[in-house]
Design a protein around this nucleic acid. Sequence first.
DNA 1: TTGAATTTTGATAGCGCTATCAACTACGCT
DNA 2: AGCGTAGTTGATAGCGCTATCAAAATTCAA
Lengths: 360, 360
Amino acid sequence: MQTAPRRARTSGSSTRRKGAAVTIHEVAERAGVSPMTVSRVVNGNANVRSATRELVMRTVRELNYTPNAAARSLAAAQGTRIALIYTNPSSAYLSELLVGALDGASKAATQLVLDTWDHMTRATERAAARKIAQSVAGVILPPPLCESKAVCSELVAAGIPVVAIASGRFQPDISGVRIDDFRAAQEMTEHLLSHGHSRIAFIKGHPNQTASGLRYEGFQAAMATAGIPIDPTMVQQGFFTYRSGLEATEKLLARKKPPTAIFASNDDMAAAAVSVAHRRGMDVPRDISVVGFDDTPTATTVWPELTTIRQPIAAMAASSIELLLRSIRRRKDGEARVVVDHVVAHLLVKRDSVAPPIST
Amino acid sequence: MQTAPRRARTSGSSTRRKGAAVTIHEVAERAGVSPMTVSRVVNGNANVRSATRELVMRTVRELNYTPNAAARSLAAAQGTRIALIYTNPSSAYLSELLVGALDGASKAATQLVLDTWDHMTRATERAAARKIAQSVAGVILPPPLCESKAVCSELVAAGIPVVAIASGRFQPDISGVRIDDFRAAQEMTEHLLSHGHSRIAFIKGHPNQTASGLRYEGFQAAMATAGIPIDPTMVQQGFFTYRSGLEATEKLLARKKPPTAIFASNDDMAAAAVSVAHRRGMDVPRDISVVGFDDTPTATTVWPELTTIRQPIAAMAASSIELLLRSIRRRKDGEARVVVDHVVAHLLVKRDSVAPPIST
DNA sequence: TTGAATTTTGATAGCGCTATCAACTACGCT
DNA sequence: AGCGTAGTTGATAGCGCTATCAAAATTCAA
């Protein structure tokens, strides 16, 4: 029990000392164990007798101890840096994603590094993945990067944990944090249905993203349940861009019997739909209802503001970091890679772009 | 010269050692000085002979040394954290701002903390400012927060350095990083003029932001130089929101002799102008040209893509961090507060929303 | 009951950096 | 010359935590 030296410092001459922060030594002393044991408990190491563990945990709670992040990462000599790699174009999430990730990172005292991978070939992506794998302990992959088999496999091969955000498919080997796209699309369709719409058009998302498929399936399911057959000409292929939304909507509204509602797979395309409707002299939502998906800033920028599905991107990013950290620690303790699929709740945000159809 | 122990470790048995990271010791050894001296140089401490300083700096550059953030904040017992406080609503900058700030922060091994101050009264803002001043060493203030006298004065009173981003006015007491809004607006107006436009309408920005005034003045100056009087009814008050742009444009286009070009003080309002024009059956840019300001994602989301002024927000955020860090260090060394006004270059981005007027 | 295999615990030695103060330079002065 | 005084530099001692390995306590088989 190295109580003596401790006492010496505590009562003694320690010239520089931070404010109130409780240290691991104080916890150790109070609990009557060594700092090392406290460290083990705090880090969830297995080899601690459960009686000891509980004693320490209680003390930690009593003293309200929080490990010092700087010291931890210094001692661990394992710069726990996490990379967030994004490909800008489609990513209207970005800012929220960053806010959440940064928040999670600073809570966990982890350094977050950003990387943009634009205009890359499959080969360059592979190379980049290999390179980043050497400098960070974990990677967060928002769409559409998380759909790239090349990137994922390279990262997994390098043995670092990966979390995919908002990826529709639950991939083997990598963990995911996402909403239930299927269910959300279903709810949105039901929402439209409940307003009395039946001629509902759907603008699909980019085919390279699995979420697109799930959203469409959710739509199909709701329509089927309502017993309304889907007119294939009322389903247009989009690519998540405003431009593609414009084109899809033009086709939809050029029909002799246009839809009374348009369900676009994301907000940008929904905004485009509103724009085209306006151009044709239609009022939204009086003449046609339009709904989007994602609740990006676009949804509240356009007028009328869009009814859409909110994904808690920030929270998702934050929990990705926690997830990553947990598996990094686990890996260090030699445990097996654990893959989790974390589904978080979405929310149907009702705004001003939906009304009952005129012809009801 | 404590070379001996150093050698021992270098050649010796050091069981745990991080990958490639260059340490302060390596720099010191190479430069033939003590680690302490390197530390002093890196931290910009004054008491180092300039010959020594340069030698060390060269070595640092040669070895590409980056201080270890964890070790630094552990030793200093004073985590150099800097806060980025934003008020979301108007801030379409956010994501770029964050990317830049994060980049700057990680380069400088500083922790960045984010804070949102929405829906606050002057009093709560004061309180929040006082509180944050205690937990961080510096603050970055993007608009519109940087225009709040209450916040600024509180922060300045607390003695912590503040950098205002993209604030039009150059405030005393706080440093700023911004573009030349006046000049940029002038250039944009000249651009329109050079295409043959003369009936140019202007949609002003929110009156509580100084940049709004400067942009309008730039417009005025260019028109004056061209010898074209400004029709006051062609100048509408906007508030940087899409909605306000909608209303302003409605008024503008309802006139018997509508403008041939609209210069909106930001991209959201310009996008709104495009939308209204479309609704009235006008083609952009054939029937009317529209230009924006800021080059936010909105500019490339709408169709046609907007000609606008690009502010290098990311770079501005990054240099804010550097600026802040420098004055934090300086303050620690007991030097006086230094206020700088850093004007960065803007860029006129020509896209598809401008064409010569039909009636020329 | 005893010895080996196992689990649990603690002492030691840093991680990379900086605060502190002592030591060592120049200088200018009586 | 002798001695401050300011300006530079370095040695020392941690910051709070964890990797490592040895010691101690426990379990289990024989």
